[in-house]
């Protein structure tokens, strides 16, 4: 529609510009990009430390946990399901992995156990949602309570780091070629699944399953298997986030991660992924995570009362969704 109306020049630059303008003006990603860019510009002017390597490093490290979980959540939401249990996973995986590390002093074993918990919880989630036919929001909200209970049941007090494995501390705090490890993990996970979602058969299946499960079934797509993969993937990535967080905190805390699920799901929805499935964008998720992280960072840098953070986060979500809704209506009317 737009390609025909815009007077397309055949030169590469012209094409690129048309495409870029379209992206900026007509997609949720573009809207988010605008907002993020505006806030970054504002903060750069307001605070001398904002646009420095160190601060950007801190900012991206901080959001890497939410981002890694949100990558899985994006795929799951596109397939038409949701996982609200990822918040409690941060606590449960944390306490279990720390105690495994303490008793075994084996880093690989600890990480494997952590990821295995992800697989198991993902399987349970998909079993309840897909086999018992319970709406996944409800099923995983219940799992949110159950996993939190399991964390408390596992240990009453927080579990301190007594193994002192140096590599373990590096996961959340170390650098590789000057870049913090959490950022490398975050970008790697993002790029891999961006590719999976947009270029592979699995990615096509995910979209098809979410858009219309009946049609997907008729087309011979293994609907349940695809959704199950989404559940397990989300849960495993949530465990991965939990391991990074564990390394950053240096102790297994069973009270943490409350509201983490809202942050992750909120970011995915803000990124333009539809709740009803079939539609979504990994880049949108990335930008949304960045936006929410920037708000937190900026409010501390400018030494604004932290209460504003909650209010501004809410208002930005509303504004972003409003802009997106207006964009959709405009496209609909064109």
């Amino acid at each position: 529609m737009l390609d025909s109306s815009a007077d397309t020049t055949d030169t590469g630059i012209g094409k690129f510009l048309t495409k870029a303008t379209h992206w900026l003006l007509h997609t949720q990603e573009g809207v988010l990009f605008f907002i993020v860019a505006a806030i970054w510009l504002f903060l750069t002017i307001q605070s001398p430390v904002f646009f420095t390597g160190r601060n950007i490093g801190v900012l991206l490290s901080q959001v890497s946990m939410t981002a890694i979980t949100a990558v899985g959540m994006t795929i799951l939401l596109i397939s038409g399901e949701i996982d609200a249990s990822v918040g409690s996973m941060q606590a449960f995986v944390g306490v279990v992995v720390m105690s495994v590390l303490n008793s075994s002093s084996n880093l690989a074993l600890g990480i494997l156990v952590g990821l295995a918990i992800g697989v198991v919880v993902g399987l349970i989630n998909s079993l309840i949602s897909l086999r018992l036919g319970i709406n996944s929001l409800i099923a995983t909200l219940a799992m949110l309570s159950i996993v939190r209970g399991a964390a408390f049941g596992f240990t009453e007090a927080s579990i301190q780091n007594t193994h002192k494995i140096p590599t373990f501390t590096e996961i959340g705090n170390g650098f590789f070629l000057g870049v913090p490890w959490p950022i490398i993990f975050f970008f790697a996970v993002f790029l891999i699944f961006y590719f999976v979602l947009s270029r592979t058969t699995f990615g096509r299946f995910v979209h098809a399953v979410g858009a219309n499960p009946e049609a997907a079934t008729l087309a011979g797509i293994p609907v349940r298997l695809v959704k199950m993969a989404g559940f397990v993937l989300t849960s495993v990535l949530a465990s991965f986030s939990a391991i990074i967080l564990l390394s950053r905190l240096n102790s297994g805390q069973n009270g943490i991660g409350a509201g983490f699920e809202l942050e992750a799901i909120g970011a995915v929805l803000l990124g333009g992924t539809s709740l009803s499935g079939g539609e979504g964008s990994m880049v949108g998720t990335f930008l949304a995570v960045l936006l929410l992280g920037t708000l937190k960072n900026g409010i501390v840098l400018l030494d604004i009362n932290s209460s504003w953070q909650v209010a501004v986060t809410g208002l930005i979500i509303i504004v972003a969704v409003l802009l997106d809704a207006r964009r959709r209506r405009r496209l609909g009317q064109d």
């Binding site: 709740l275 209460s307 504003w308 209010a311 501004v312 809410g314 979500i317 509303i318």
Partner: peptide, 18 residues
């Protein structure tokens, strides 16, 4: 404005509390 109610009210959950 045809906004999705779940996300909109998620926003106002934070906005009002804030």
């Amino acid at each position: 404005q045809k906004m999705n109610s779940l996300v909109t009210t998620l926003g106002s959950l934070f906005a009002l509390r804030g």
